[in-house]
Every structure is written in C-alpha cells, then in structure tokens.
Amino acid sequence: MGNKELHAMYSIDDIDIEKLDKETVMEKLMELYTEKVYLLAYSFVKDRSLAEDISQEVFLKVFKYLDSFRAEATLKSWIYRITVNTSKDFLKKRSLKQLLLENSWLENVKGTESTETAFLTANRYEELLQAILALPMKYRVVIVLYYFYDVKINEISSVIELNTNTVKTRLSRGRELLRRRIVAKEGEVL
C-alpha cells in the first residue's frame, strides 16, 4: 500500500493513540511520516545518510515518548518538533563544514520533456534548493516547513517554539533573502 492510499485510509487525526496498540500507531505514523521526517532532517544536515540516522532517532523518540504525548499539539506538529530538535542537537555536535550537500533531489528527474528542458528544469530547481539550503538556519527551517510541508504558521510556531509574529517575520525575511540571491544569481554572466 502506497503513502497516498494510506493517507486515504488514515489521516494523522484519525489515529487514536488511546484505542490502538503502540506498535500499530507507530506503524501508521512511520508510513505517513518517514519521508517527511527524512526530508526535514535533510534540510538541516544536507547529507542523506545523516538524515536517515536522524530520522531513525526521531522515530525511536516518538516510540519512547508516545505514551506521554499530551495532545497539546497535533501528532504531526509533535513529530516535526522532535525532528527539528533532533536535527538541531545533531548540528550542535558536528561542524557544519563537515556536511556536504548531495545532489540527490535531482536524481529522479524523469518525464516526457526533452533532455534540454529536463536539464534546465533540474538546474533551476537545484539553484533554488541551493539558495534555500544556504539560508541561515532560522530562515531555512521556516521556509522548508511552510513551502515543502504546507505547515501553517501557527503550527510552525508550535514546532520551533516561537511566537507567530516571529515566524511571519522570519518567513518574510527568508523569502526576501531568497529573492535577492536568485536575482543576483540570474544577473551573473556564465
């Protein structure tokens, strides 16, 4: 069963952690959120294997603390908060200079486009991705959660434990930094 079929069967709100056994809840959460947790961790560490390690650690923490989940936030927000905090903890332990960006997001550029069109599309996407990943962490996390995960501002506020006005400001400033970088990049002569 694919992720779309699972989403059709279960939404995160349909998972009643009080009525289902812990293993069933974890299985559903992992099926719904493994890829999202991995990509969120990747946006922090910029390395596939490290993001996988962080993802595993996140789900271990979710399993360990699931019984103490108080439903003050949604399960989704809670999982994202654990991912953000685990990623931040990891970054504190490792030097950012040791982390390398891999071009894994572009490996699966497929379709009916011509090779030239596919290359140009992939190149634009790579430039945008590079610009996002080059943002300071406080802007990057807000941009990634808002645009890649469609997390609402109030949920982002809960995930990163800042007030909503600060989130809005960081989102606005992050967009402006991205715009400037992209305009500056397009102005360069190749």
Rank of each mutant, 00 (worst) to 15 (best):
K93G: 09
F119A: 15
L6H: 08
E107A: 13
E113M: 13
D89N: 15
T115K: 14
K64V: 08
I54Q: 06
L60Y: 12
K110I: 10
L133I: 01
L101D: 05
D53C: 05
A51H: 06
R179W: 07
S49A: 10
T86F: 03
M1S: 12
G111Y: 09
S157K: 04
V141S: 07
N85C: 01
E113P: 00
R81I: 04
N108T: 05
S55F: 00
L171S: 02
G187S: 14
F119C: 09
R48T: 14
M137S: 14
G174K: 04
N103F: 06
T74G: 09
T166C: 03
V141F: 06
E126D: 12
I17Y: 02
Y42G: 01
Y149W: 06
I79R: 03
K22S: 12
L96T: 11
S49Q: 11
S158T: 14
A184L: 04
I153W: 01
K61G: 01
L101N: 08
I82L: 14
N3L: 12
E186I: 05
I12K: 02
F148Y: 14
L120I: 12
D67A: 08
A131W: 00
F44T: 04
W105P: 00
E116R: 14
K4T: 08
S11T: 14
E31D: 05
F44W: 03
R81G: 12
L101F: 14
Y146Q: 02
S95T: 10
S158H: 05
R140G: 03
K93Q: 13
E52P: 04
T112V: 14
S172P: 00
L178D: 00
L133K: 00
G2R: 06
A134C: 03
I156G: 05
E102S: 15
W78A: 10
S95V: 05
R173H: 04
N154R: 09
K152D: 05
M26A: 04
L6E: 07
R180Q: 11
Y80N: 08
S68A: 13
Y80E: 05
D150Q: 14
R140C: 02
L106T: 13
R81C: 07
E127R: 13
R124N: 11
E35S: 04
I12Y: 01
E176M: 07
Y149T: 00
K64R: 15
S114E: 10
A118C: 07
E113A: 15
I12Q: 02
E5F: 06
L133R: 00
A51M: 07
L135D: 06
S104M: 09
A71S: 15
R180C: 02
N85W: 02
V37M: 00
N123I: 00
L66V: 07
L128W: 00
T34V: 01
I17N: 01
R180K: 15
L29T: 02
D16E: 05
F90D: 03
K76G: 13
M137T: 15
K22W: 03
L96V: 11
Q98T: 15
I15S: 03
V45Q: 06
M137R: 13
E57I: 11
S68K: 14
S95F: 07
S77A: 15
K138P: 00
M1T: 10
T115R: 11
R94I: 11
L101V: 13
K168R: 13
D150G: 12
Y33F: 15
E188N: 05
R70C: 06
V142G: 02
S55T: 14
V84P: 05
E186K: 03
L60G: 08
N163V: 06
G174I: 07
S49I: 10
I12T: 10
V109C: 08
Y125A: 11
N165D: 11
